[in-house]
């Protein structure tokens, strides 16, 4: 769910946990290198962690509930309905 940390690339700096407006992460610098994505349901997908990660080690995954609804623009035209 929400932020996905590449644990190989993560530097363990904790910037993501510090800047996240929702406290999605929990980072115990003493015991853990990689922050834990503790509260995924509180992620707003603002991208702050992605933008500020110095190692570019975070990607967001949008839950299926958040999917964008879209169509090919050229389908926006009158439909050929059967004649009455």
């Amino acid at each position: 769910m929400p932020p996905v940390i590449n644990t190989e690339a993560c530097l363990g700096c904790g910037i993501c946990a510090d800047v996240c407006p929702l406290q999605v992460f929990r980072h115990n610098k003493v015991t853990d290198k990689v922050p834990e994505v503790k509260r995924p349901y509180e992620c707003w997908h603002c991208n702050a962690c992605v933008l500020d990660c110095p190692a570019h080690a975070i990607e967001l995954r949008l839950p299926l509930t958040h999917m964008l609804l879209y169509v090919d623009a050229d389908t926006l035209k009158p439909r050929d309905l059967p004649a009455r």
Partner: peptide
């Protein structure tokens, strides 16, 4: 975040209309 998502999903505002 919206742009990243659209890029990943191949949603192109030049071709796609978004609800």
């Amino acid at each position: 975040a919206l742009l990243d998502y659209m890029d990943k999903e191949g949603i192109d505002p030049g071709r796609h209309a978004v609800e």
